[in-house]
């Protein structure tokens, strides 16, 4: 006993170091499983409010650019509206809506790490929940991973854990969208079968199999494609529409029927 105590006393610094190192490694490793690291992220009030204050200040310097982007988006939406075959009075019944939208502002962006997270200034109090989709005017951005009262951390598509259902526009050939961490303006689309005819420049949009994103939200265009090692499906490099380094205003998509879809799928899995 005496010797054990002596041992501990002699190596107390090393032991302290090892304990702290193991704690930090444990945090790192456990977060590789989905949705586990919910307490330690930039969506808490301290970092959230600091980022928010900083953003309030720096916002003034980019107002012109943001205005221009919003104007362009409005232009596109209006041209859609006037050219579409719309009845005189629009339906305003919210029960009939499939998706509801919230707007938010990015207060912290990141794109140079392996696992990038974006912090936005809306949280549970404003109705943001885990697993809602986040898009910009140009294309998809990511999925809400964690929320606090007033902020939310979004898992960007530039994240090794990201996995989103996507397809070639106009077809129903879908694959999964991942990121190989090499470039922040490119993501990879995998599992598109070999039979599909591809062309460089084809548009990639979100697929219908996701209960998070509506179908046909733009993602990017095909930049390059190769057959994978087993020669059975394509690996496609997708050039993103979004400039991931310069983002400000985002929309959060809520799919009210998602709960129902998930319940149904769970029942299926349980029956099996």
């Amino acid at each position: 006993m005496q010797q054990i105590i002596n041992f501990i006393l002699r190596y107390k610094i090393t032991l302290l170091y090892l304990i702290l190192l193991i704690i930090s490694l444990a945090f790192t490793v456990q977060s590789h499983s989905y949705h586990r690291s919910r307490y330690f992220n930039s969506a808490n009030w301290l970092s959230g409010s600091i980022y928010n204050t900083m953003d309030d200040i720096s916002n003034y310097f980019s107002l012109g650019e943001i205005n221009r982007q919003l104007l362009e988006e409005n232009l596109r939406l209006r041209s859609l509206l006037y050219n579409a075959d719309v009845k005189d009075s629009m339906e305003l019944d919210t029960v009939a809506l499939n998706y509801t939208l919230l707007s938010a502002r990015i207060i912290k962006n990141s794109y140079s790490n392996q696992d990038n997270y974006i912090t936005i200034n809306k949280g549970e109090n404003q109705g943001v929940k885990q697993d809602m989709g986040v898009i910009t005017a140009l294309g998809i951005l990511g999925i809400v991973e964690k929320t606090s009262n007033n902020y939310a951390a979004v898992q960007s598509i530039l994240n090794t854990k990201s996995n989103i259902n996507a397809k070639i526009k106009g077809t129903n050939n879908f694959g999964s969208l991942k990121w190989n961490t090499k470039r922040f303006d490119e993501v990879q689309l995998e599992d598109i079968p070999r039979l599909v005819k591809l062309l460089v420049g084809d548009t990639i949009v979100t697929g219908a199999r996701s209960s998070i994103f509506p179908e046909n939200i733009p993602i990017g265009t095909i930049k390059k494609f190769d057959l994978n090692t087993s020669q059975s499906s394509y690996n496609i490099d997708v050039q993103l529409f979004n400039d991931m380094t310069n983002l400000k205003n985002v929309y959060i998509i809520d799919n009210p029927s998602r709960v129902e879809i998930l319940e149904l799928e769970n029942e299926l899995n349980n029956d099996r």
Binding site: L21, L25, F27, L46, N116
Partner: peptide, 15 residues
């Protein structure tokens, strides 16, 4: 906490 890197900075800094 600020940069959403789990505990990578902590591990490196404590080392």
């Amino acid at each position: 906490i600020f940069s959403d890197t789990l505990a990578l900075h902590a591990a490196a800094t404590v080392s």
